[in-house]
Write a protein that binds this DNA or RNA. Structure first.
Lengths: 279, 279
DNA sequence: GGCTGTGAAGACCTTCACAGCC
DNA sequence: GGCTGTGAAGGTCTTCACAGCC
């Protein structure tokens, strides 16, 4: 989302913190923890997850203390941004010294809500669904995949990554039973909205959508979209920009500037197929 | 993504357009096309790709003309933003009428550099690599996957999606020969940097990185990162925020505000394994 | 001396609201 | 009347730069 963007969100302004709450640091009766939680900017949240991984790596290497400069370099951001991000959590550094790795890991985990387990359901057991079901990073850190769904009868009851696949018709029941909080949609585009509706009906509040569609959801449901075609096209844009730059440098003013206006490659359309392709 | 989405980018300020170039609309000798290309904000580029898909869908349904309101709804943004985004391309709408679907498709394709083919290499042929190699959305729209790599001897020369897998050692040669412009890294974290270095050596200018590492690249290389663990953690944050809100509404001030401070779930670390897991 | 935490400044993005055109 | 294109206003995020603490 990378930044990168990142990603394509649509907060619709609701994310804005009321001016008052930031001006008066701590009203009586309203705990600082909650204030803090709401105050962390979206962009910072994404980076905190990256810092967390970097810190975990450092911790395993036996590093106890890290400066903002070191951590920033390792995480690929600049140090001012890192310090600002960490300041949203509170003041857990020591001036002249740096941050204690374990303390910081604990604080970030708490802020991201990682002190709670989040059962994950994966819908669409194609290649991508397999990749998600087997992804080692999830279960090892509080994201156990606890339900799988597909509509293909041949897949039902076959275990993938240790969990048997259920039918799409059972989404509501199974998600409710297993208290699924996060749903990953890895189906083709045409089934995605219906799958999404069932997940929501089954009590799933957060959805990670790999299908190339814009999902319609009630406003209390959070959707994040991972769209590979979009990522490729963004990269394509940068190739084009670079090419222009190179031309400009190589022979400034000489090269036909409008060569880009050449006829389109072909009339094929991209939208269609979604991610799930079974060999 | 999403204002969230954003994805995690790291332009490091270099993307900032020098104040002068925007003030003076069109210097002599510098064609408008290039000015436009550089001027499109990153955030708008990501959305243009979404509009493109939406428009393609409309085109297939036989729709010839669309208003900003209609297209915005279908793409999940508000109409002012959409019009602003489209205005970066030039003025291709008709007041009182709307936009011609085909014209708009053509203009967006041109701006995103989709009038040129981009050969794609996929490195790491695990579940995710398979998903990428078979992804229908790529070849159908100017992103032919033309090279696959893995280090597992058992996979070498086996065709996946019609293309035989090559060894990591051949990345430089094969990418050069096949003029690969985009590389997708779907390896575990520990091999990713080396793979990246070889891709760059093989002339690849844009990299889509699925491995949970921050890649070091020369500044002329563009990297976009897709990090599933980070996406999950961002969703986790929103679950936590929602839970807090619900408590605040349900029994304002009564519920123990620091229940979040409970001990961390376990000491497991997330970083490690990367995406590629073979059953 | 070294490093954190943070106001203030600046860049960037979104939204508003309306002039201009069909 | 309807809709686009766009200055201007308003937010949000990033960067700067330095006070404050060890």
């Amino acid at each position: 989302m990378t930044a990168h963007g990142e990603g394509v969100r649509d907060d619709d302004g609701a994310a804005g913190v009321p001016p008052g709450s930031q001006a008066s640091p701590q009203e009586i009766g309203v705990p600082a923890a909650r204030q803090r939680l709401r105050a962390i900017p979206e962009a910072a949240v994404a980076r905190l997850a990256v810092y967390l991984r970097t810190l975990s790596g450092l911790g395993e290497q036996g590093v106890n203390t890290v400066s903002s400069e070191e951590l920033a370099t390792a995480a690929g951001v600049n140090s001012a941004k890192l310090r600002k991000d960490l300041s949203y959590l509170g003041s857990y550094g020591t001036r002249g010294v740096g941050y204690d790795v374990d303390v910081l890991v604990g604080q970030i985990e708490q802020s991201l809500g990682l002190t709670r387990r989040h059962s994950v359901a994966v819908v669409g057991i194609g290649n991508l669904g397999h990749a998600l079901a087997n992804y080692g990073g999830f279960p090892s850190r509080g994201f156990p995949v606890s339900a799988l769904f597909d509509k293909d009868p041949d897949l039902i009851d076959i275990p993938v990554g240790g969990i048997p696949v259920s039918h799409l018709d059972d989404i509501v029941r199974v998600c409710t039973e297993r208290e699924v909080t996060i749903g990953a949609i890895a189906t083709p585009a045409d089934g995605a909205q219906e799958v999404c509706d069932r997940l929501v009906e089954g009590g799933v509040a957060c959805i990670l959508n790999f299908a190339p569609v814009v999902l319609q959801v009630p406003e209390e449901v959070e959707v994040r979209k991972v769209d590979l075609a979009v990522e490729m096209q963004i990269l394509s844009f940068h190739v084009a920009r670079r090419t222009h730059d190179a031309e400009a440098v190589g022979a400034s003013g000489r090269v036909d500037p409008d060569q880009v206006d050449a006829v389109p490659l072909n009339g094929a359309r991209l939208d269609g197929e979604g991610m799930v392709v079974r060999p």
